[in-house]
Design a protein around this nucleic acid. Sequence first.
DNA 1: ATGGTTTTTACTGCGTC
DNA 2: GACGCGGTAAAAACCAT
Length: 321
Amino acid sequence: MSNSNVTARTRTNEVSREEERESEETACPECSGNLVMQGAETVCQDCGLVVETDEIDRGPEWRAFDAKEKDEKSRVGAPTTNMMHDKGLSTNIDWRDKDAYGNSLGSNQRKKMQRLRKWNERFRTRDSKERNLKQALGEIDRMASALGLPENVRETASVIYRRALDEDLLPGRSIEGVSTSSVYAAARQAGVPRSLDEITEVSRVEKSEIARTYRYVVRELGLEVQPADPESYVPRFASDLDLSEEAELRARKLLQNAKEQGVHSGKSPVGLAAAAVYAAALLTNEKTTQAAVSEVADISEVTIRNRYHELLEAEQGLPMA
DNA sequence: ATGGTTTTTACTGCGTC
DNA sequence: GACGCGGTAAAAACCAT
C-alpha cells in the first residue's frame, strides 16, 4: 500500500451513517427506479435524482508516521473498487500448485486446492448471476411501468426471469430479450396481456428476437400460457375509446358468444377484441370509427371489418343474450 | 425450405354531411 | 370534397411440416 493512504481523514459523521443504512434499499424514493453509483454519488438511473452525496470515507482513521508504524496499525487489505461487480472483494485462488514459498504441493494438497478452486468458482459465478439479475430486474421494472402493468405482474416476471437464470437459459441470449419475454409471459399469465407490438415498443430488442426468446423460455420452463383471451383486451380498448360500461359488456357478450361457436380459432385475439369493441359501440349507438379502434388496438381496419362481420354472424345464429 | 393460413397494405367505389 | 365504410387483390407475416 502506498504512503498516500496514510494521510489523516476526518471521520464519517453520524448523518451519513444514517443515510447509508437507508440507502440499502435499491429503489429510488422518487420514481422507484434503479440506483447506481456514480463516483461518490448514488443516483437514480431513471429520473436522475441524487439520493446520496455523502460517501462513506473508507480510508483509515489512524495516522502513521513511518513504515513500521503503518504495518502495525494496518489491519485491512486492498482498497475496494467499484470497477468490479463485487468491489474486488471476492476470493481468487491461484491456478499454480505452489505454496507461498514457490514449492510444489503434495498430491493431497493439490487435490484439496482443486476442490477449493471448483467451489470458489461456483460461488463466484453465482455472484455474476446476481448482478445479471439486478440489471434484468431493472429492465423488467422499466418496461412494466411503461406498459402500465401492476405490481404482481412485475413480481411474476421477476420469478420467471430468475427461473430462466437458474436453468442456464441465458447463455446465447440477451438479458434484454429474456427480461422482455418474462414481462410478456407474466402479463399474459396475469390476464392483462399486452400484444407483442406493444411489448416491442418499450423493449430495446426487436420483435423477432422477443418472439423467439419467448417461445424458447416458455418451452424450457414448461410455462403454462394459454392463448390470450380476447376478452382481457376489451376493458383497455373500451376505456381508451371512452366507451360506456354498457358497450364494454356488450363486447364481452359478443366474444363469449363467438367463443362458444368456436369462430375464433386461429384468429388473432387482439383483432377479435378490437372487432368486438367496434361492434359493441355500433350496437349501443356510441360514436367510434374503425380507424379509431384500429389505432388503439394496433390492428388494421380490414381485420376489424372481417372479424366483426363474423362476430355478428355468430350472434345471428344464437338467441339474443 | 414449403405451403397454407391470416394479416396488412393499397386502392377503389359508394353514400353522407 | 372530406369522411366513414365496405370490398378486393396482392404482398407480407406467420406457422407447422
